[in-house]
Write a protein that binds this DNA or RNA. Structure first.
Lengths: 242, 242
DNA sequence: CGTTGAGTTGACCATCGTCAACAGGAGTGG
DNA sequence: CCACTCCTGTTGACGATGGTCAACTCAACG
């Protein structure tokens, strides 16, 4: 008889095999704090979708029709300068949220580095949900402050560090964030290309390449297809912290 | 008889000549959204105080006993690297808030560039006030997102711009923020020293000095004691945006 | 009038950017 | 199956931007 007594939420989850209750990133995403009833309400406004490699997800100075919670893949978040120079502000990983400010315009562009899956919510509907759930706003505020902390870390990296230190800091930062997103392996995948790394670190593609080669020659890392294996994480951490 | 019929809030304001109702920065500070009753409640927990030049206001990795809303003066917000290098994350102006995350530890240090006046609130009491006032939390969230936007702007400056562009961007940014804080004049005060500017822009004191001299030689600025006069703001803006 | 500290300027140098050539893998077509 | 192209990444030679080190000016202060 226990089948019959199953709660409605569970029945829903059964009918939606990708429902929030089975979401792999729920505990690290903004949704983690939601009680079952509010989670259902939010799920009802979710239009999950996928983006292919290089597909555009959001564009700077365009109306933000939707906001996104990343569930799979990696996103490139960037701004363009008037003369065509690009700077990558960061890489979005599963659990990250795009559009935290809930403002009507994006102040960044975003596109898919790998195939990407997201929960997509109409911004206005999402914003009114947030207005009715102060404890959820608190969660968004935590996320914004965490983003701010990361941005300030990057400011120090760009303002005060050498190429070696920047590349080391990048590797360690990405390893830590991948761990936070549930990934764990001796080999760190680097699905973005060298130009992306350069545009993130304020270097050129040649300097990134040379620096990685140097770190490999000194046996701190091993360059493998699609990523790096960390051989001496301790030395990299020293460089990164410097 | 109108004296007698004065509302209690006005009487309070009368007894507290520096009370919130007379606050010069109220409309641009976090407090702007508060209704009169909530404003009084917040005011009751305010311990206004002043900091002298170079006096420490907050220290990285120390317990955040208090949070601050700046009402007068300029604050230097920075992080130290293990080897003693310093990087300045930003300059706090009247209306800015220190401790937006409400976390128990500061992730930055702050000290006074000029004499500084602040509204000081015990963090825990302030946090519980925020918990009871969702519309105020929303205001803090707006402030955090604005800080994030500024930080990302600075990331682009540090990642992609030349010394000329950085110094121009600094001057224009400071002018815009001073305007936002109610200040307006053809002469922009630079109360921080050259080392501070260098540590903010990821340059050395010599490069900042040379760059300012160059901008002055080209008649874009005039260097005056304690600041600069903008002669060709349009040209500076071009450089800054580049 | 000497001392101190901030700022400026000059000479030299190192790091990283620029430009160019080359290597290697993926995809395509004969 | 191989030749060809394309694209990404690597490596080398050279140069420019900004850093380093040192000297000097100037104002504030005793």
């Amino acid at each position: 008889m226990s089948e019959v007594l199953t709660r409605p939420a569970d029945i829903c989850a059964h009918h939606r095999p990708n429902g929030c209750t089975r979401c792999k990133v729920r505990l690290i995403s903004v949704c983690s704090v939601l009680n079952p009833s509010d989670l259902s309400e939010l799920e009802a406004m979710n239009r999950p979708r996928k983006f292919g490699v290089r597909e555009n997800i959001a564009t700077e100075n365009e109306t933000a029709e939707n906001v996104f919670s990343i569930t799979e893949g990696m996103v490139r978040i960037y701004r363009m300068l008037p003369d065509g120079r690009r700077h990558i502000l960061g890489f979005g990983l599963p659990g990250d949220f795009l559009g935290l400010s809930l403002l009507s315009m994006f102040d960044f562009s975003a596109d898919a580095v790998t195939d990407v899956s997201v929960c997509q919510f109409p911004r206005k509907v999402f914003a009114s949900f947030v207005d009715r759930k102060p404890y959820f706003l608190k969660r968004l505020h935590e996320f914004s402050n965490n983003e701010l902390r990361l941005a300030q870390h990057q400011i120090v990296v760009l303002g005060r560090k050498s190429a070696d230190e920047r590349v080391s800091a990048f590797i360690i930062m990405l390893r830590d964030r991948m761990r936070g997103a549930g990934y764990s392996s001796a080999t760190l995948p680097l699905p973005m290309n060298r130009q992306d790394i350069a545009d993130y670190l304020g270097l050129t593609i040649e300097t990134v390449s040379r620096t990685l080669t140097r770190l490999a020659k000194e046996k701190f890392i091993l360059i493998v297809p699609g990523g790096v294996r960390l051989l001496r994480a301790d030395r990299l951490e020293e460089f990164a912290a410097a």
